[in-house]
């Protein structure tokens, strides 16, 4: 294990879903249409880093998160954690993987088993991985609940999910994710379904994991504002590909890709005295079955030209560790 090796290395990852259309599949059995949810993505995440994965619906960001956590298998490409190929892990070894890697899900109302109390939910990972006594387990549950802000723990251990608010449920879910002391967490939109005043506390909680425990986080979100708060680096996804990646501050200050520019400019500003400059974008996101040929953004891009329709731009590295996939990146 090398110290300067990235903790997580995603290399040319593809996740395609085969879709067969009724009668046509009988007539031409070899012709599959694919939903190219993740289409050749490469990304690195270093120890103790929070990296943001930004994208709108259909971008493939959630699918990417699930492949990293082995909820799905890649179609091609690799996910390396500490140098080990994640997709090659055999089912009986998978348990060990889940001691290092965990996931937080978006919907606080669906993330907990409605039949389990908080204690039951938090007991599960402990029972599966360790052989602890009842008191030891209880102690660990209590201390984890305190860490996520559910204090005093006694008030929450015997509650069922429907007896708790959305924010409290999400905290229990976060407690479940950290109770095994993972080194890496995939957080898939953990705050988008929470009230505004609770959102901030959850974001601060995630920040504290990085600061106090050195946990690395892949933070998936459509909300650039939360990404800018948490993440030191970010990558912008569109229809399965990364279009731009780099340090958060620099990308937000000086975006290069037209899509990134449009995304940033579309965010409303909570200050009536500031006027924002809107970068207009035509039309809607095409559906995943009809990804445009050439640069997948060209139909909506105001700068599109002939070359964009024909050739798909690769991710090129510019200065300052910025990568952009655009023919006019220079």
């Amino acid at each position: 294990m090398h110290q300067d090796q990235p903790l997580l290395a995603i290399k040319n990852l593809k996740k395609w879903y085969a879709v067969r259309f009724g009668l046509s599949s009988l007539l031409r059995p070899s012709e599959h249409t694919y939903i190219r949810a993740v289409d050749d993505v490469s990304l690195d995440l270093n120890r103790g880093e929070i990296v943001g994965l930004v994208g709108e619906s259909g971008s493939g960001k959630t699918t990417l998160g699930e492949v990293v956590v082995r909820l799905q298998r890649p179609t091609s490409g690799m996910v390396l954690l500490n140098g080990t190929d994640v997709s090659a892990i055999r089912k009986d070894r998978l348990r060990r993987y889940y001691r290092d890697v965990q996931m937080i899900f978006q919907d606080p109302y669906e993330t907990l088993n409605p039949r389990f109390t908080t204690a039951g939910t938090l007991d599960e990972p402990l029972k599966i991985h360790f052989n602890l006594s009842d008191t030891d387990r209880r102690e660990r549950i209590d201390s984890t609940l305190r860490v996520v802000g559910l204090d005093p723990p006694d008030m929450f251990v015997d509650k069922y999910p429907h007896e708790m608010s959305g924010g409290q449920r999400q905290r229990v879910a976060i407690a479940r994710a950290i109770i095994l002391n993972p080194s890496f967490i995939v957080a898939d939109e953990p705050t988008s379904m929470l009230d505004v005043s609770i959102r901030a506390s959850i974001l601060n909680l995630l920040k504290s994991f990085k600061q106090n425990y050195g946990v690395s986080i892949l933070y998936i979100s459509h909300d650039l504002s939360t990404v800018s708060y948490l993440c030191s680096r970010l990558a912008v996804m569109y229809l399965g590909k990364i279009l731009e990646a780099g340090s958060t501050d620099k990308v937000l200050q000086d975006p290069v890709h037209p899509y990134t520019k449009a995304l940033i400019s579309a965010i409303p500003i909570a200050d009536p005295n500031v006027k924002r400059e809107r970068v207009s974008v035509k039309g809607d996101i095409p559906d995943a079955l009809h990804i445009p040929l050439g640069c997948r953004f060209w139909p909506r891009c105001s700068k599109a030209e002939e070359v964009c329709r024909k050739e798909e731009p690769g991710l090129e590295e510019l200065q300052d560790a910025r990568t952009v996939a655009c023919h006019f990146a220079v």
Binding site: M103, D107, L112, P125, H129, A173
Partner: peptide, 10 residues
């Protein structure tokens, strides 16, 4: 999601 979470719990 809670079943996915169970898988991720190992």
């Amino acid at each position: 999601p809670f079943i996915k979470a169970a898988k991720v719990s190992g």
